Measured scan of single mutants.
Amino acid sequence: LVRYRTISKIPQITLNFVDLKGDPFLASPTSDREIIAPKIKERTHNVTEKVTQVLSLGADVLPEYKLQAPRIHRWTILHYSPFKAVWDWLILLLVIYTAVFTPYSAAFLLKETEEGPPATECGYACQPLAVVDLIVDIMFIVDILINFRTTYVNANEEVVSHPGRIAVHYFKGWFLIDMVAAIPFDLLIFGSGSEELIGLLKTARLLRLVRVARKLDRYSEYGAAVLFLLMCTFALIAHWLACIWYAIGNMEQPHMDSRIGWLHNLGDQIGKPYNSSGLGGPSIKDKYVTALYFTFSSLTSVGFGNVSPNTNSEKIFSICVMLIGSLMYASIFGNVSAIIQRLYSGTARYHTQMLRVREFIRFHQIPNPLRQRLEEYFQHAWSYTNGIDMNAVLKGFPECLQADICLHLNRSLLQHCKPFRGATKGCLRALAMKFKTTHAPPGDTLVHAGDLLTALYFISRGSIEILRGDVVVAILGKNDIFGEPLNLYARPGKSNGDVRALTYCDLHKIHR
């Protein structure tokens, strides 16, 4: 019993810090008490220290592992850092350059016999395009090294910054494609005289377009951006097909006994025919423009016929181009109408809503002055909100995010209106959640004399007048207030005048 009563005193000691020596009952000389009392004092002292730490809000209350900052290894790049964003855009520009100039170089340097010394005699450094290609190869190699040090988000939505895990993730992902696209074939085969082989191998750079397509997928929600990307894709495919079309004609031209190829026909049409040795002929500019003209006309199913396939190889390629053109029509131009419709969806919704308003007016036989006010209010409210119901949009977000959005939407009023000066951010967040926005066209009466005042109004834009009878008592403008002081009276009061809008007004109100 003594032991039980001794232990039962522990909660009292913990909360009230009572010393055991003052209790005459606990001072009985028993061996059990002498053993338990020192333990009680020690526990009391420890609990006292913990309570003191909690009340003082000291940093040592938290466990040590929670006080440590997340460790980022040296030379690790955050995937959302500004440097990584700028670097990704730079790589994107280099990939676009590669997609345009690599097929052009591979096709127009394929057994090209233009006048001038061969590239091997001039030297590697004197070729501007080769120098640019070398810079692109170096940048792609540097990009691989950067990807080995860039964080990523795993399946659990955690940012991984450990170098080993980053390397394994990159090896399992895009490393092989990036490595093949970054191989400097110019340096590996330079001086061997195989410019045709170098041009063909350099087309491996186009593998990076797969990554670019995935990154550009984030802009699919913007109709104008999608339309622009589709047109660029169409032009890029036409450019690639033009390079292939020229390569076919250029390879067949020296081996044909009869002059029936499209390059021969082009030379005869523009007065620059090929001679018996295969030299001469149109310039590279004429060849490229004509090839691009043929691919565009074939892809769009126009086909004027002034550039036509004559050999079997050219006919087979033309059939493939027609098939590609039909697929592009289905996948690209078939979506253009939907994209344009999405661009004008706001206008369509406006006309639909206006039609419903006019049908309501016609069905209920609203008189002319009231009908005009109804239409003007709808037009003004639509121009202010673009038909978007803010309350319906915010309803799907958590309250903390709703408060931040409301604070942002009402920031101008909260910053410049005098009653809100000096208020804490928590108070402003709470008030912003209570605001209701209303609009009024010129001549609209917001409050009639004798109406119950259940709200306090803040003028965000425009001006109003307060009338008693036919006498203008006051004219209020931006950041002015009218209405009933909230919670100042037990019952809502009545208006002693009319409140009429002089201009288009936007008002925020808080109800009782």
Score class of each variant (00 low, 15 high):
73 H>V: 05
74 R>C: 06
77 I>G: 01
77 I>P: 01
82 P>M: 07
86 V>K: 03
86 V>P: 01
87 W>N: 01
99 A>G: 04
100 V>Q: 01
100 V>T: 01
108 F>D: 01
109 L>C: 01
115 E>L: 14
124 Y>D: 01
125 A>F: 15
126 C>W: 01
127 Q>Y: 12
134 L>G: 03
139 M>I: 03
150 T>F: 01
154 N>K: 08
154 N>V: 11
168 V>P: 01
169 H>T: 05
176 L>Y: 05
180 V>S: 07
186 D>L: 09
194 S>D: 09
196 E>P: 14
199 G>C: 12
201 L>T: 05
202 K>H: 03
208 R>W: 01
214 R>F: 01
215 K>R: 14
229 L>D: 01
234 F>Q: 13
237 I>W: 01
240 W>V: 01
244 I>E: 01
245 W>S: 01
252 E>R: 01
253 Q>G: 08
254 P>T: 14
258 S>G: 14
259 R>S: 15
259 R>N: 14
261 G>P: 01
262 W>A: 01
264 H>K: 06
265 N>A: 14
269 Q>L: 01
272 K>C: 01
279 L>T: 09
281 G>I: 01
281 G>M: 01
284 I>P: 01
288 Y>V: 01
296 F>C: 04
297 S>Q: 01
302 V>K: 01
312 N>V: 03
324 I>N: 01
329 Y>M: 08
329 Y>T: 15
344 Y>D: 08
345 S>W: 10
350 Y>C: 01
352 T>D: 11
358 R>P: 03
358 R>K: 09
359 E>G: 03
365 Q>N: 03
368 N>L: 08
369 P>F: 03
374 L>E: 01
377 Y>V: 04
379 Q>K: 11
380 H>T: 09
388 I>H: 10
390 M>N: 06
392 A>W: 04
398 P>H: 03
398 P>Y: 01
408 H>T: 01
410 N>D: 01
415 Q>P: 04
416 H>E: 14
418 K>F: 05
422 G>M: 11
428 L>A: 12
429 R>K: 15
432 A>V: 08
442 P>A: 08
444 D>W: 08
444 D>G: 10
444 D>V: 07
446 L>E: 01
446 L>D: 01
448 H>A: 09
